[in-house]
Nucleic acid binder design. Sequence first.
DNA 1: CCGCTTCGTCGAACCGCTTCGACGACTACC
DNA 2: GGTAGTCGTCGAAGCGGTTCGACGAAGCGG
Lengths: 345, 345
Amino acid sequence: MATMHDVARLAQVSVSTVSYVLTGARPISQATRAKVLTAMAELDYQPNAMARGLASRRSRILGLLLPMDERGLGATETAFVTGAAAAASAVGYHLVLSPVGGGGDLDGLRRLASQRMFDGVVLMEVQLADERVTALQQAGVPLVLIGRTGDTDGLSYVDIDFAQTVREAVAHLVGLGHRQIVYVNHSAETLASGYGPALRTRDAFVTAMTGHGLEPVMIPAQDSAAGGRAALAAAFARTPDLTAVLAMNETAVFGILGELTARGLAVPDDVSVVSMVTSPQVAELATPALTTMTSPGSAMGRIAIEALVRHLDGAGDERHQQLLPCALEIRGSTAAPRSRHTDGG
Amino acid sequence: MATMHDVARLAQVSVSTVSYVLTGARPISQATRAKVLTAMAELDYQPNAMARGLASRRSRILGLLLPMDERGLGATETAFVTGAAAAASAVGYHLVLSPVGGGGDLDGLRRLASQRMFDGVVLMEVQLADERVTALQQAGVPLVLIGRTGDTDGLSYVDIDFAQTVREAVAHLVGLGHRQIVYVNHSAETLASGYGPALRTRDAFVTAMTGHGLEPVMIPAQDSAAGGRAALAAAFARTPDLTAVLAMNETAVFGILGELTARGLAVPDDVSVVSMVTSPQVAELATPALTTMTSPGSAMGRIAIEALVRHLDGAGDERHQQLLPCALEIRGSTAAPRSRHTDGG
DNA sequence: CCGCTTCGTCGAACCGCTTCGACGACTACC
DNA sequence: GGTAGTCGTCGAAGCGGTTCGACGAAGCGG
């Protein structure tokens, strides 16, 4: 491995000159620059990342903190992670995937932050009240959240615009003529734990339905196919003439579809289904393919990283707060309701 | 941020003594150790990762090189990545997710390797003939492959035992009484490009079927639901009385299921389906849930990292070569064939 | 009681880069 | 033509650790 000294010697200049050629921190004449560049090429020189990081106090490494308690990432999260990795790589940063124990491991987090390995971090799966955020802030690490806390004062975040997403989804169904729409949310425990997406979509659903003069019927469901089945059964018990299901639960939605088929109901002729915050790949797995509110997973990853890097490179300490809506993608699982009951109620 | 000097001053010892307390490279008396530890606690000292990396020439960072050309990772790859991240974190290493341009970007790879940022790397999606492997070897980076090249001499790798996996899958179907089994593989282009899993399962399928005295019928399919549909149509054209499908293509298998339903055929009563190298989460999305050869994604990630770290920490330069079979998990998509043709040919 | 190890600690030399102050050589302006 | 800036370059001092050689104090066999 050639070092800067080797390059300097070969080019007959000082080390600092080599450094300035590399960083552009000071002007260098064309002639000198050429000499140095030639020497670098000849020696196949690559700057040592650790040395650079130590001297400049910038590691050019970003941390992606993800909770590891869950049983694996969903398609949306995966898209987010790869989008973030690609974006980081594109701007010359490295991205460390750092699984952190869910919640309890605050000390571990602080230790991580104090090692000065990360120039900044992206924190995933933020809860409404999240002590990790304050821990990280106190450690002085530049921070971008995915999701957001209740109080976002002085914080940078990127999140899904759940209100807008739900509004559009409901508008789509109502526009098709649906009146009996049931919302299948995450489980009651998840709601109770303060999981932002579940709470925000719940509120948004109530608002949207009420706005259309309709009754907001909501059913919780476990994150599993069985949970979806059970939820659909519960939905029919409560609203026998439902014609549409809005689901917030990638896993449960397939159970819903299965249960629908088992009951001899066709999608979309008897019941329309919209799956929210869902990736196209998953949507295509169903037959018919699911109409979804497509999650901007990869874009969110990119935007989060770009915001973080902008904050690091630029001197400004502006906060980046952005909400991204999910895009309605109409596939085969939604249609006008078959006029079973023309006007009853 | 307190430094080692601060700790040394407070504990009234030299910096090197503090270092020895930390690394254990030399014996330190109980009394001194206690003084140092107390000082560290008082100052809330955390060693600087960059400085340590520079001085020790060990960054404690591992690279996970994944091709970024594809449209996102599947569930199996995701499990692999998270498994690797968890394993790295457990042994005190960091894991950098490094998307590298597929194939052509050899120079970028070399540059990456020369930066000495990674103590070692895990290379995913290895092709049968993969120049990235030699590039990395020449750069002198400790390396573990996921998948394997044609010639694995002197290389460490972890891969799926495709031969064993296919043998078990076929045995399962044959054991149920199936005789007309069609194998749906990846696309012809993928085969032609030298994609190991596709080639190895192809060969294994021929061997397994021939071993049972059966004819190995194989159909390629694009990696999409539509591809699965087309493949199934082709399969029926070629083998009208097929009773079982063995699929090597997580995406296509859902198209196959859809097409089966469209043709009025029930799973598993009319046609049994086994999906290979598939995660349980995906299996549960289908109705009925798919019988799979479950991919050991997370375990592979863990094993790869552990092998790499063992190689780094231990002095030994033994190679780690390991094949992991997929486990047969019987769910609802396989059953004995309905005796449509009792014995016909 | 002497010479030899072993133990515990220190000081100093790096690791390979960035960055600051200094300085000679020009250019520019009055 | 003297003074004041720029420009281009150099030397040296870090950045915060690790690690090696050295050395005094014990411990030990003869």
